[in-house]
Design a protein around this nucleic acid. Sequence first.
DNA 1: TACCTTAGAGAACGCACGTTCTCAGCGCAA
DNA 2: TTGCGCTGAGAACGTGCGTTCTCTAAGGTA
Lengths: 194, 194
Amino acid sequence: MTQDEATRDRVVRVADELFYTRGVQAVGMDAVRAAAGVPLKRIYALFGSKDELILAVLRHRMSVWDAGIAAEAERAATARDRILAIFDFLDAWFREPDFRGCGFINAFGELGAASPAVTEAVREQKSTFQEYLARLVAETGAPADLAPQLAILAEGAQTTAAISGTPEAARQARAAAVTLLDAAIHHAGDLVPG
Amino acid sequence: MTQDEATRDRVVRVADELFYTRGVQAVGMDAVRAAAGVPLKRIYALFGSKDELILAVLRHRMSVWDAGIAAEAERAATARDRILAIFDFLDAWFREPDFRGCGFINAFGELGAASPAVTEAVREQKSTFQEYLARLVAETGAPADLAPQLAILAEGAQTTAAISGTPEAARQARAAAVTLLDAAIHHAGDLVPG
DNA sequence: TACCTTAGAGAACGCACGTTCTCAGCGCAA
DNA sequence: TTGCGCTGAGAACGTGCGTTCTCTAAGGTA
């Protein structure tokens, strides 16, 4: 890793934490400079603008999220357990003291109306997650319709936990996921009785 | 309605639309003045500060939301159908051309970190919704655990629809709600088979 | 040592915006 | 008619912040 890459990485990590904790617009570039210990001139040489830094932060957060989900999932043996591991992952995350909701949803609410690039980045991370879920659902043999339903549960759990300030949404979403999985697998191919 | 009340109402409605469409921080007080046709001096006499205006807007949006849900629900005969009517309500909302997600979730993402008052207002509207759902669930005879699960589906559908830009999350969440309702009512009191 | 390039620290600039102030006009009591 | 309080329109003020500029110091090369 070159010096530039190391500095870039450091700035992105620091900015990510600040943006997530306080909100993007509430954090000035000077706060990033102070926290990263990197001169403004250097930051602007590396990123060009705050908007570019924001996108770099979103990309970084996306890779961290993907790695975290994958790490939690690979400890489970079956696809069904890997799906449920996602909700255990959420549970642990919600209990972290500085949990403040999904950074992508927050960024979308804050900047999505004004920035198509932010919207695009957020949309990309959500669709990556949905595709991951779709693969797991396919492995279980359940109908493909199940995947977006589980994704909606995961999204809802994140906002509910953030706003309520409690982690219980993870457990509730997990229970719902179990019900949906059981219904999809046990009754696969059946019509819902009237 | 006094003159003051009418002007307050006008300013709140206009600000609500601007805040929702462009984001709260992206809308200056001067834009509110121009759109409402009310002098800044008058706005500040009525609200005191932008922060107060934001809270008034959130309160207004909460009452509109509650009324909208209630209007859609009262057309249904049974508690089960009133629950499902919520998802039909979401479906219609998601198809509106200027739909941009849940205004409360967006406001939380944008301002929650900096403003406890905003967090409190958002939390209040979510808990009002959860209580409403809990009453409907109780009417169906399903276990109380079902209510937060349905709430999570509704939340997740809103963020998913906002970010994806498509309304299909409403249909998917509704299908999941049907499965959860059926499972809760058919198997009420049972243990999940191993 | 003398010179050139580069980087760091912080001041400076320009702009946007929340809030307040100024001033002109208008209704109204005597 | 003559003041007087109120209101509207917009200028003005202070501040914060994204971005750029300036100055100084250091490091490498003849």
